[in-house]
């Protein structure tokens, strides 16, 4: 029995993609891609560069529309819904690049995340401080985001998303460029978000050791198609996956 299967994952299906497809002109970025995200789990989405991970993120968050296929969030059909609507239904994503408001203060960055909720100013600021202390930004509220060290910038992009009070947090390569201790702290944060705040997390990440440690399940994309799915250990031993990453040994 794998360690992943013993973690408290695998509740109700909260997000379901059915035969998702997205074409850009002649290029098919994602094709026949079906997967399920279950409440309370940390699901890893991995694959070589160009496999369609970012396209998948843009599709499920409503930033682009699928060419065909369907998306269901909490049983509700959200195919073709706007980014605004999907975010308000509880699915909030972060970005791999340009993931924050570089010219604004840390506090203002996090504030932006609270604006879709009707709150009094004091409540908003309370929320900002709460999220900032969760993400290690409490001492940097007045710093201009672009001047933060890289590790804290990655944390800030997560903080903006958290301020929007998501149920599902979709993180696009949140660990890129982090130092060893920072990776550990980030993974601890993900675990805390899941256990203490009941969040479900979809994680796109290239750091394989982190994916193995953090995720309950992993799905592998290659050339826009589902290549493998399962617990991290099984996926990491899967020959088709190894081949996709390293090429065929001859």
């Amino acid at each position: 029995m794998s360690a992943a299967a013993s973690t408290p994952a695998g509740g109700e299906v909260i997000l379901r993609a059915e035969k998702l497809e997205r074409r850009f002109g002649g290029l098919t970025a994602v094709s026949d891609f079906s997967f399920e995200l279950r409440e309370g789990e940390i699901l890893g989405l991995i694959g070589p560069n160009g496999a369609g991970k970012s396209t998948t993120f843009n599709l499920i968050s409503g930033f682009i529309r699928p060419s065909s296929g369907r998306l269901f969030l909490k049983g509700r059909d959200i195919t073709g819904a706007s980014a605004k609507k999907i975010s308000r239904l509880g699915l909030v994503r972060t970005f791999q690049h340009d993931s924050l408001l570089s010219e604004m203060s840390v506090a203002d960055n996090i504030l932006i995340g609270t604006y879709h909720q009707r709150l009094a100013h004091d409540k908003r600021m309370e929320k900002v401080r709460e999220v900032a202390s969760m993400t290690g930004l409490a001492d940097h509220l007045e710093t201009i985001a672009g001047n933060l060290p890289h590790g804290l910038q990655r944390m800030l992009s997560i903080a903006i998303a958290l301020a929007a009070e998501p149920q599902i947090l979709c993180l696009d390569e949140p660990l890129t460029g982090l130092q060893g201790a920072e990776v550990g702290a980030a993974l601890d944060l993900f675990e805390r978000l899941r256990t203490k705040h009941g969040l479900t997390i979809l994680l796109v990440e290239h750091n394989m050791r982190a994916v193995m440690r953090a995720c309950d399940r992993v799905i592998v994309l290659n050339y826009g198609r589902l290549l493998a799915e399962g617990p991290p250990e099984a996926v990491s031993r899967d020959e088709t996956v190894i081949e996709a990453y390293l090429g065929r040994g001859r």
């Binding site: 968050s61 930033f63 706007s82 980014a83 605004k84 975010s87 308000r88 909030v92 994503r93 972060t94 970005f95 340009d98 993931s99 924050l100 408001l101 570089s102 010219e103 604004m104 203002d108 960055n109 504030l111 932006i112 995340g113 604006y115 879709h116 903006i160 998303a161 301020a163 929007a164």
Partner: peptide
């Protein structure tokens, strides 16, 4: 006001307000 902060956020990087439920 808060509205002015949102305008600046749009200028800075409009994907961020979009991602947190703003039109």
């Amino acid at each position: 006001s808060d509205l002015g902060r949102l305008f600046k956020a749009i200028e800075n990087n409009d994907a961020i307000p979009r991602s947190v439920g703003l039109n």
